[in-house]
């Protein structure tokens, strides 16, 4: 599935398949309730948000009350009550990314798209949100599209990304595959792999920065004792 394919329709009523997949998630754990977080990801994948129906379904499968499910769904920021666009664009504005350009990128995108925080463009394509630290500080400022890394952004590059997304042009993560839709991403997070783990590099330049320098200078960790044993034995004999 690529960015240019039409997205699968939102399930207005949860399908039989989704019901059975929700049960499948619960069955992965020694205690079924442990499945709730991934189950809610699957609800979002099927219905584009956490719906009242999805909450009822999780509650029924896990034997807990809808209020208990609701309490969980409202606690975690990745769960959305309003429909999310085809692409969720998150701009990191925690301290380091903010200083390195995140604040300016977010302001520019809000202006360019004409949306506020956690709002979706009228064409339903892009939901814009400021996000907290996404563990990519060595690539600051960082933007996430459907939770794929878009590293080392500038206001101009960020505008280009959202324009491409809205025009249906493919956008590729700097450290991953071509971005899928938000609902497809949510399905992977629910524990249903999409077979795309082998796309993209092992890491970006920052990931490999120290290793590259070590290679240039011939630096390594000490050799294991087993391997040096003959040498020291030799030294002992010489002595």
């Amino acid at each position: 599935m690529t960015a240019t394919n039409p997205p699968e329709a939102v399930e207005t009523t949860l399908s039989e398949t989704t019901w059975s997949e929700l049960r499948e998630i619960a069955a992965r754990y020694p205690e079924a309730r442990s499945g709730l977080l991934p189950m809610l990801h699957l609800v979002q994948s099927a219905q584009g948000r956490v719906t009242p129906e999805g909450i009822e379904a999780c509650a029924e499968i896990l034997g807990i009350t809808p209020a208990e499910v609701n309490g969980v769904a409202t606690f975690y920021t990745m769960y959305k009550r309003k429909p999310v666009g085809e692409y969720h664009v998150g701009v990191c504005t925690t301290a380091l990314c903010a200083v390195m350009g995140g604040d300016e990128i977010l302001a520019r995108l809000q202006d360019h798209l004409g949306v506020g925080n956690d709002e979706t463009t009228a064409d339903g394509k892009v939901t814009l949100e400021h996000i907290e630290c996404n563990a990519a500080c060595d690539y600051a400022p960082v933007m996430m599209v459907n939770w794929e890394f878009l590293d080392n952004q500038t206001p101009d590059s960020a505008v280009q990304v959202v324009d491409d997304l809205r025009a249906g042009r493919p956008v590729t993560s700097t450290r991953g595959p071509r971005v899928c839709t938000w609902r497809e991403a949510e399905r992977v997070l629910a524990g249903f792999p999409d077979g795309r783990a082998d796309e993209g590099p092992s890491g970006g330049p920052a990931t490999l920065a120290g290793l590259a320098i070590a290679r240039e200078r011939g630096w390594t960790a000490p050799t294991a004792p087993e391997l040096t044993a003959p040498e020291s034995a030799q030294e002992a004999t010489d002595a």
Partner: peptide
Amino acid sequence: IRGEVLHVVRRVQA
């Protein structure tokens, strides 16, 4: 794994 790192989740699942 935190949910906001899709490709990392893919790699660990695989």
